[in-house]
Simulated scan of single mutants.
Amino acid sequence: MSSTTAHGDAGDGKGSLDGSVIAVAGAGGPAGAAALLRLAAEGATVVAADADADRLAQAVDAARSAHGGASVTGERVDLLDAAATREWAARTEKEFGAVHGLVHLVGGWRGSPSFAETDLADWDALHDLLIRTVQHTSLAFEGPLVRSGNGRYLLVSAAGAGKPTAGNAAYAASKAAAEAWTLALADAFRKAGGEGPPQAAAAILVVKALVHDQMRADRPKAKFAGFTDVTDLAEAIAGTWSEPTEEVNGQRLWLTPKP
């Protein structure tokens, strides 16, 4: 069995993701908006979801406006509801015939001045945002991604997951748990491939933190050293379909220097 790569071919006049159907969870934020723009530009049919209907609508409208004729849809999905998440995955596969990707961009941060001042309410909140949503989306989309023959499950994580600081205990632990869960999915994809390459890949894109134009405008003197621009993140996301699944599966893809 040969390796699976992206659908578009160089020089065919199509985007590298032409014919692909990619779901984006947490699409209403700056990273989500950048991902929608890039995926639409590459020719993908993009199915976006977010808990905030207004932010989602703005991101979807921007992607549609930037790329006339692009297929970008959005709907409010409660990713903390396992049944609703499974229904989203099943509905997407039924409507479009396949799902080639789930990009997980649900985020959130809470910290404390010191380890001793950690508020365990922060852990409860981050557990839902950063772990539970990963569990629900991965369980819901595992089957469709394998059936697509070229699936990607992509998690965005933070370098701090592997080098936590005293005031970031809850955040770093949540990110580390989400990474472990994603790597378990990668192992499931590997085993499903049998003797050949996996038909889907799960990978982690690691950043120090993200930055976007509004942050720069709000803090014109800030350096944002080591931060990853959301447009660069979007480019890296789209690029994973250009690599063979066996080279992507189970990998931590660093977009910032390793600590």
Rank of each mutant, 00 (worst) to 15 (best):
T245D: 01
D61S: 14
P257A: 10
E179H: 08
G194E: 09
K191W: 10
L255F: 05
A177Y: 05
A25I: 12
T85C: 13
A166E: 11
A125I: 01
G107F: 07
R132Y: 01
T231C: 01
D61Q: 14
S71D: 00
L17D: 02
D52R: 07
R252D: 01
G193E: 11
A66N: 05
W254E: 04
E142R: 08
T137V: 11
K258V: 15
A217I: 06
A159K: 12
G29P: 08
A238V: 01
I237H: 00
A158G: 03
G239S: 14
S20Q: 13
N150Q: 15
L183H: 11
A172C: 15
G143A: 10
A178M: 06
T256M: 02
A49K: 06
K175Y: 05
L36P: 03
P144T: 07
N249S: 10
A116L: 08
W88N: 06
A41G: 10
A169P: 00
R38Q: 15
L79Q: 04
A83D: 15
D124E: 15
R132M: 04
A84V: 06
E87S: 11
N150F: 11
A200R: 02
D128F: 01
F189D: 00
G101S: 10
R216C: 13
A40E: 03
V103D: 07
L185R: 02
V21F: 11
L233R: 09
V230T: 04
G162H: 08
L210S: 01
D61W: 05
A166P: 06
L255Q: 06
R76K: 15
A225Y: 06
P220R: 13
R110A: 15
S71Q: 04
F115S: 05
G69Q: 06
M1R: 14
K94Y: 04
G151M: 07
A31M: 15
S157N: 09
A159S: 15
D122T: 09
V77F: 13
F227V: 08
Q58C: 01
G196Y: 09
A51K: 13
A192Y: 02
D218P: 01
A173I: 01
S114L: 14
E195M: 08
M1K: 12
A6Q: 01
V46H: 14
A236E: 02
G151C: 10
A121V: 04
T118D: 14
V106S: 05
A10H: 13
R252V: 03
A23S: 13
L139F: 00
D187F: 01
G239I: 05
P259Y: 06
P144W: 02
D18S: 15
V207L: 05
L129N: 11
A98Y: 04
E117I: 02
D12G: 14
W181R: 13
K14C: 01
H127F: 05
A169T: 14
S65I: 00
A84I: 11
L183V: 00
A184T: 12
E95H: 10
E93D: 13
G239C: 04
R64Y: 07
A192E: 14
A40D: 07
R216P: 10
L155I: 00
T240S: 02
S148T: 09
Q135I: 11
